[in-house]
Design a protein around this nucleic acid. Structure first.
Lengths: 257, 257
DNA sequence: TAGATTGTTAATCGATTAACAATC
DNA sequence: TAGATTGTTAATCGATTAACAATC
């Protein structure tokens, strides 16, 4: 439905707007201003208005936004007012976790089938969906007008299956395999790389720890300086410079800028 | 170990560099230039060099980067050269999927325990880790020096558990619950909102479809025009303008800019 | 009408890309 | 030394924020 290219940043914020509007709706809130919403969501009101105006004017001056209306409009923009037929390839824990998440169905994502190479899983039924052998894949996609395939298999098998999916006419791959897939331009790939998410978390934990340590060290130095000054209150300003230098040497290169 | 604030965009690219370097290492590649790597990863060489230089000069002029060295350096930057003790709260499919993913352990993430409220799950063992009742949470965190908690529970219970985790001294929450958590500044939250990921995919599928349709329509118009011209080859230039106008009216507002 | 709040333009900020001197 | 490629500065591009006129 949308026209001009919308930036990736905007798109990735839309589902979060949708989630907050859904909560407001549950709370019985009828209207909300960009300012109120910005406080709840911890973003700027400007950003909210800019983001929404990429898709049209959903608000009203002097009033704000009607929660219900905006909620349904964002659903329409995201395309979750339509039905999307989905299959899950890989019926392990992750595949089953997706199959069991009922909210997806509420958003129009209908799980049509599950597939696995493991013959011990084939035939089992998860939330009313039978697990099939991977050999039926192409036929099933055509018969059931499947648009989206969730790929919850090991990275070693992912490229081959992705090729088969593309040839069978799939429109999008929700890729949980720890690898990047090569697909034609008209096939959408949305990656969920959990190991990368965990590494980002690791980075942030470590840099948080470093920061806390630096703060603690700075405080300690501060205390030491105070003590020194009390003993000999000359205060020529030289001490301050020492403090700054003491923080620097941990890693010289990055310190330059 | 790092000093100045590094942008979020840079950090989120690091794990991907790490993954590609790991693959190069497996292929037996000893050195690589930013240009070669940029082709593989489909990013600019400039970006690679800029990103890495946030953390120091890992390359050598005229040579490029030593794959092994860069690989270990990025591991160090990400903090995955250290051990992180982790617990999983919520032993459903998603929690078990995480517990079963052996690669996390290879990156230093040690799963110390799993917790669930469901008494039928308590006592079960997943990959050598026993599922415990949630009442033992605080004691367990202290006894096992747990830094990270993966939260794979329904959103309704997430805020309460998050509070308990924070009070018990957890450093980071890997949040799979479909809600934003309120935690103090010194606690890291890394969100994995699968439903939002699926909505982004939905958006992209829909806009891809729209695009393809527009292209098809444009081609059809082109063909029609050609036919018309062949019948009456006046060609005053007015037809071209008509084509442009015909594309516009689908949604007027966005079309303006 | 007066007050509130949007839609939108302009200003700022940050991130990406290009260019090139430094140097292996 | 000549060639290659980094590290880094400068230029460009895009995204966010601020400001305010339009308007409900």
């Amino acid at each position: 439905m949308e026209q001009k290219e919308i930036s990736k940043a905007v798109i990735s914020r839309l589902p979060r707007y949708y989630r907050y509007l859904g909560e407001l709706l549950e709370e019985g809130v009828e209207r909300i201003s960009s300012n109120e919403l910005s406080i709840r969501m911890k973003v700027t009101a400007s950003q909210i208005r800019q983001d929404l105006n990429n898709f049209g004017g959903f608000g009203q001056q002097g009033y704000g936004y009607n929660v219900k209306y905006l909620y349904t409009e964002i659903a329409r923009i995201l395309g979750i007012d339509r039905q999307h037929n989905l299959i899950i390839i890989g019926a392990g824990n992750l595949g089953q976790a997706i199959a069991n998440y009922t909210n997806f169905e509420r958003r129009g994502f209908i799980i049509k089938g599950m597939f696995d190479v493991n013959p011990r899983l084939v035939g089992l039924v998860v939330r009313g969906v039978e697990i099939r052998g991977i050999e039926d894949l192409e036929q099933f996609i055509r018969d059931n007008e499947v648009q989206i395939a969730a790929l919850t298999i090991p990275k070693s098998k992912a490229p081959e299956i992705a090729d088969r999916l593309v040839k069978a006419g799939i429109k999008a791959i929700w890729n949980f395999a720890h690898t990047d897939l090569q697909v034609p331009d008209d096939v959408v790939v949305e990656n969920v790389h959990l190991s990368e998410s965990l590494m980002r978390l690791s980075y942030r934990v470590c840099s948080m720890q470093d920061q806390l340590e630096r703060e603690r060290a700075a405080k300690a130095r501060e205390a030491a300086k105070k003590e020194e000054n009390e003993a000999q209150p000359a205060g020529s300003g030289k001490e301050e410079q020492d403090v700054r230098e003491a923080q620097a040497p941990v890693q010289e290169r990055t310190q330059q800028k």
